[in-house]
Design a protein around this nucleic acid. Structure first.
Length: 820
RNA sequence: GCCCGGAUGGCGAAACCGGUAGACGCGGGGGCCUUAAAAGCCCCUUCCCGCAAGGGGGUGCGGGUUCGAGUCCCGCUCCGGGCACCA
């Protein structure tokens, strides 16, 4: 005879078994039409890279999954879908690099992701998977484009793009580093192409003010506010001297208009040709050509100021003085009116310009330094005549000088007063400007949804009728971009030549595809409708499930993806397709997993392959370890040795359930700790404070198994429910061991009983003069007098109490402070 | 430059509303069990002085408020992120 070894926890077996069971029983399937208390838990879908799932992905998904499972245990019907952001320049570039075709490569990558994700044990209803590169998805992306077009929110205009002459391709701004192509280092040029834009600028104010109503991570909201960049000011008209023309400028400092000593136009400003005098034409033209050649990134970076005088003069409406009109590349056509009034005395850029080009101001305009750099604001020791060594921009407690009737007005009041005065004279209007510019959705690429527009010789620009969607992306072998500046699709006449949908005459398709960010700007609407072939989204289902209750994702998408999604939702609401305008009620940004203090990247060679860890420790341990690293919303440093602590905890839980005693009664002290733990774990899990929830469970385990005591079944069963969101496979197995036949995820969340939580004695810290000198054990209901007596009875404390206590501060059950 | 975060032991980190700083885990030390090892279990582990009892210091830096400050206020330093020739 030999004793049978107790069965040890074998994560591989347990996980395989439950993944099979979940699939067979449909545990993760959601009844979208009937479920009670619907809860839409969304996580940012991944781009299916060839490298496979990254720990960062798994960290993000696990955090979302825990929240989703917790809500299910609380009794919600939880819909947690997942899919793939499979279109886009990343996939296309990678395909080009390895010489594969994205249409074949993408499904392979998706398959690999799918396999890895299924091992992670996410509570995803895979029947509602989306893949943005599939025709049954991008058909509706094109539909979204058409709705925006119908509402007048899509328009076409010529705009500058970055062009790499070596790669022969259009580059995104992020792909330009210091004026050069990030991949080959060639100097990037500007090209002007006709492109499609969405009028997101029209929604700037709404996108900004709605932020106050959203329950989002503060970092994310602040990033959006910066990006939208609202600024209040005025548009001021300057009449051009001796000509029938005027220059409109935008300024946030109308109060400094008495110090506006010259104007500057962007080199591409349409008035430049009109204003340039014959003697200045060659210099101005040369300067314009130079700036056009510059790439967009270095154009916007700070370099030494340059510019040219146009030969024309304008009249300052406040002073009546003649001021010269210049052009300079530090003024951007895209912002404001593309022209500024320069106040060198009180603007650092204008000051630098006036200093650097001082010689030209003297020789070409006949203006001395003092005439150009004029003080109109003074503060501190300075007065109207104090010379300016630098631009004076400290407006606090400053007032206007050399400003006629406004002398002495505090800067704080002057803005409104001067604007009103200018407005009354017909020279200015108060305006609000936004930095947010319209969204360019055209991509001169292959791997995206063709923009559903046709150009007809007779009818002009014609949207493709909705019933003719999708405009299918053809399988072409030569999808590589070339130096034509148009999409590879433009090489395929057999594809782009079509009859006009309106008149049947000769027409050509738009050959650009749309931006990947459009694919992801509406995917949350598609998930609950992923099986519908007749509509993009159904009104009833959408009303039932949206807006999204909880959205979790990385803050790298704080601006583009989240802002575009909000814009598209607003636009669809205005078009009558939705009855809400904010898609994500609650958004939380998760942190980043770093390693050895550095971001994980292939070049650093510090990338973690999740498969290795799942094989060695099991998915449950790996999930739980990722959550234990640090606060979820801050991320943490991955140390491979740390995982053993979490695994040890799960081993002990396994053993506790296996050996649990069904006879007898649970221990009162243990049960007290249990109820405290239930409360703590629930509060922390709801707040995404996963690291401290896990710590609380570990702490309970230390009590439960202290000195290898035998555990009673009632002491351990609720812990199985608490751990379920974190280690779902193990929890199911333990739940079954405890004699249940249904899933633990249908068992509910245990309730805590405040009466069972109270301690009968408490430890009170005793301070003398605010310094902790000892602690005393007292009954939980002890009065202040009881505690003082107990403290003074303790000689180690009493020796610090010299004389009669003057003041006694008692914080019930926690602390006593004696002041002598 | 402006706007958001953050800085706590050897390490990852905790600390509700201003109330015992360092929970939980890693690492380290010691013990029990074992022929031995592994595993498991128990104890210790903020720093300095001390054999100990005990004492003193301590949450990036400098001030302040308070009986009491990691937490609040003022002034900085450094790190991470966003915006930025945006008028």
């Amino acid at each position: 005879m030999h004793t049978t070894e107790p069965v040890a926890y074998d994560p591989q077996a347990v996980e395989a078994r439950w993944q099979r069971a979940w699939a067979e029983r449909g545990t993760n399937h959601v009844d979208l039409a009937n479920g009670e208390r619907p809860f839409y838990a969304l996580m940012m879908f991944p781009y299916p890279s060839a490298e496979g799932l990254h720990v960062g992905n798994l960290f993000a998904f696990t955090g979302s999954d825990i929240s989703a499972r917790y809500h299910r245990l609380l009794g919600h019907t939880v819909f947690q879908p997942l899919g793939y952001d499979a279109f886009g320049i990343h996939s296309e570039n990678y395909a080009l690099k390895i010489g594969a075709h994205p249409m074949e490569l993408t499904p392979k990558n998706v398959g690999n992701f799918q396999r890895q994700l299924e091992r992670a044990g996410l509570m995803v209803d895979w029947r509602y998977k989306v893949d943005t590169s599939q025709r049954d998805y991008y058909r509706w992306t094109q539909w979204v484009f058409l709705q925006l077009h119908k509402q007048g929110l899509a328009y076409k205009k010529a705009a500058a793009v970055n062009w790499c002459p070596s790669c022969k391709t259009v580059l995104a701004n992020e792909q330009v580093e210091g004026g050069a192509c990030e991949r080959c280092g060639t100097v990037v040029e500007q090209r002007f192409l006709e492109q499609w834009f969405f009028r997101i600028g029209q929604y700037a104010e709404r996108l900004l003010t709605n932020l106050d109503t959203l329950d989002w991570s503060e970092v994310t909201k602040s990033a959006q506010r910066n990006w939208i960049g609202r600024s209040e000011g005025a548009e001021v008209s300057f009449r051009v001297d001796a000509r029938d023309a005027q220059v409109r400028v935008f300024t946030t400092r109308p109060d400094t208009i008495f110090g506006a000593t010259y104007l500057v136009l962007a080199p591409e400003h349409p008035l430049v040709d009109v204003l340039t005098t014959p003697d200045r034409v060659s210099a101005v033209r040369a300067y314009q050509e130079r700036t056009t050649k510059q790439d967009l990134v270095s154009r916007k970076s700070v370099t030494e100021k340059t510019g040219e005088f146009t030969g024309s003069w304008a009249i300052n409406p406040a002073t009546g003085a003649r001021v010269p009109i210049w052009i300079a590349d530090y003024v951007l056509m895209q912002y404001g009116t593309g022209a500024i009034m320069a106040v060198p005395g009180h603007d650092e850029r204008d000051f630098e310009f006036a200093e650097v080009l001082g010689a030209q101001f003297a020789s070409q305009c006949g203006l001395s330094r003092e005439a150009v750099i004029k003080r109109v604001v003074a503060g501190g020791d300075a007065d109207a005549n104090t010379p300016l060594e630098a631009a004076f921009t400290d407006d606090a407690a400053a007032h206007l000088v050399n400003s006629g009737a406004f002398d002495g007005t505090p800067v704080a009041d002057a803005k409104a007063k001067v604007t009103e005065w200018l407005r009354a004279g017909g020279h200015a209007e108060p305006v609000v400007n936004f930095r947010l510019h319209d969204w360019c959705v055209s991509r001169q690429r292959y791997w995206g949804p063709p923009i559903p527009i046709v150009y007809c010789d007779t009818c002009g620009t014609v949207p493709v009728p909705e019933e003719q969607l999708p405009v299918e992306l053809p399988h072409i072998a030569d999808f590589k971009p070339d130096d034509s500046g148009v999409s590879p699709l433009a090489r395929h006449a057999e594809w782009y030549n079509v009859p006009c949908p309106t008149c049947g005459g000769n027409a050509r398709r738009e050959t650009d595809v749309s931006d990947t960010f459009l694919d992801s700007a509406w995917y949350f609407l598609r998930y609950p409708n992923a099986r519908r072939e007749d509509v993009a989204f159904d009104a009833g289902i959408t009303q039932r499930w949206l807006p999204v209750d909880s959205y979790i994702g990385g803050n790298e998408h704080a601006v583009l993806h989240l802002l575009y999604s909000r814009f598209v939702t607003m636009a669809l609401k205005d078009g009558g397709h939705l009855d809400f305008e904010e898609p994500f009620t609650r958004f939380r940004a998760h942190g980043l997993i770093i390693r050895d203090g550095a971001k994980m990247s292939k070049t650093k060679g510090n990338v973690i392959n999740p498969d290795e860890y799942v094989n060695e420790w099991g998915a449950d341990s790996f999930r739980m370890y990722l959550m234990f690293l640090g606060p979820y919303q801050e991320g943490g440093d991955f140390r491979s040795q740390g995982i053993s602590g979490v695994r040890r905890f799960l081993d002990r839980l396994w053993a506790a359930v296996r050996d649990a005693d069904r006879e007898g009664t649970p221990d009162a002290d243990v049960m007290r700790k249990l109820h405290q733990t239930i409360r703590k774990v629930g509060e922390d899990t709801g707040a995404l404070a996963y690291n401290t929830a896990i710590a609380a469970m570990m702490e309970y385990m230390n009590v439960l198994r202290r000195a290898e005591r035998t555990v009673h079944v009632d002491e351990v069963a609720p812990l199985v429910q608490l751990v379920a969101p974190y280690a779902p496979h193990l929890a199911e197995e333990c739940w079954e061991q405890l004699g249940h036949t249904g899933s633990v995820f249908d068992a509910g969340w245990p309730a805590w009983d405040a009466a069972l939580m109270v301690e009968d004695t408490v430890e009170v810290a005793v301070q003398v003069q605010g310094k902790t000198r000892g602690r005393v054990q007292v009954a939980a209901d002890a009065t202040q007098e009881d505690v003082v007596r107990a403290a003074l009875d303790d000689p180690t404390i009493a020796k610090f109490v010299t004389g009669e206590p003057k003041k006694v501060i008692y914080v019930k059950g926690r602390l006593l402070n004696l002041v002598v």
